[in-house]
Amino acid sequence: MQDGDDVDDFTARSTVIAGETETVDFTGSNQFEGESSGSSYFLALHRPGSKQVILQPAPLYIVTRQVKALKIHQSLAPSTHQRVQARNALGETFGTKKAKAAIRANERNKVDAGAMESVAGVLQDRIDEGTENLPTQDEAKVAADAARLIPPYNAEAQTPEDAYPLLQIIPEQEWNALDGLVQQLKGAASDTDRYRMLPFVRSTWIRQHLRRAFSGPKPKNKDAKMLMCIAAMITFRGAVERSVPEKAKLLDRMSPIPEVLIDGLLARFTETARGSASAQMTTEKDTSLLTHTFALCLKTDNFATDTTLIASDLKMSLPRVNTLFRSLGCKIEALTPHDLKRLGLAESAAATKHATLKVPIAFPKPRAKRRA
């Protein structure tokens, strides 16, 4: 090694050394992870002739050893089950009472998959038998729609007018019984006199619509009869909301509504509990009465009803009234300029949201449950 450059070149090379004994293998390399080993090493060469010591760079080798007898054994990482067992063992030994109780509870709740294999086929057969008679998604939707607390409807209606047939909201016999009252309304001298002829006299919505119905030279009998029905339904709800009074008192309070109409309301919107002799209005019956009333309001309003005004008249919260209109398939939205023109409303009416009904009827979908 008389040439220093040759030694320098050798230390820069990537080299490997190896050795062995009867029981151990040794291997090493002068290449390290990272940029450098952090140190430099030199050999001191003493030349007797010149009496000089020369420092020559030398490579560094990190040597590892491996026992020959252990080469066939490979260490395996512990499984999840082994980790859980080890953690539980530590918890049982050093854990608190609460931690030990949790460990025992987890052990009790474990499912023995091996034991379940023998009964898996039986369980599957029972599941198949139990699901044979379950309704399809379409059948379930039809059943859910039929159970809605709303008037009978026509899902294939081409116009909003046909969506809820009038005589499905109020039977024909009761509808025809109002003809005489309509003639009396037409013969009244003023709107105030007409309003006093109705059984319910504290409704801004009814007052406005009664004035509008008789504002023209030829008022429509249909509009007047629908207003009479709405007034009768609202009055009936207030009269039986807490308890159904005696028939004579109910007839007096709802005068001049015909008795046949009152009997129909009692039959459809009250029920008698088993073992009881008195009728009552349940929550479901109340909801049904309100949706029947609101369906008539939609027809009177050309299918765009101001829900804020109705909520105020009925002393109900606006969200509940809006929910009932949505159950009829309505959307609660602001009116467009085209709607305002079609309905003959002022531009200021656009500031108030209305319940609008369009076809085909689209009922609200059930809300998905939030994850805990």
Rank of each mutant, 00 (worst) to 15 (best):
Q2L: 05
D3A: 06
A12M: 06
A18C: 13
T21L: 08
G49C: 04
Q52D: 08
V53W: 09
P57N: 09
P59N: 04
Y61T: 05
Y61P: 14
R65M: 13
L76P: 02
L76R: 12
V84H: 14
L90M: 12
T96A: 04
K97V: 08
A101N: 12
R104E: 03
E107G: 12
E107S: 10
K110E: 10
A113T: 13
E117C: 14
S118N: 07
L123P: 04
L123W: 05
G130T: 01
Q137H: 06
D138T: 10
R148E: 00
L149R: 07
N154D: 04
E161F: 03
D162C: 07
D162E: 14
I170V: 10
G180N: 12
K186D: 04
S190Q: 14
L198G: 02
F200W: 10
V201L: 07
V201C: 02
R207H: 07
P217A: 15
P217S: 15
K220L: 15
A224Y: 01
M228K: 01
C229T: 08
T235H: 06
T235Y: 06
R242K: 14
S255T: 05
D263T: 08
G264L: 14
L265E: 11
L266M: 11
A267W: 14
A267Q: 15
T270E: 12
A273K: 08
A279L: 05
T291W: 07
F294V: 06
L296E: 00
C297M: 09
S312M: 00
F325Y: 00
R326L: 03
C330K: 05
K331N: 02
E333D: 00
T336K: 00
H338V: 10
R342N: 01
A346V: 12
P360I: 01
I361D: 00
K369I: 12
R371Q: 08
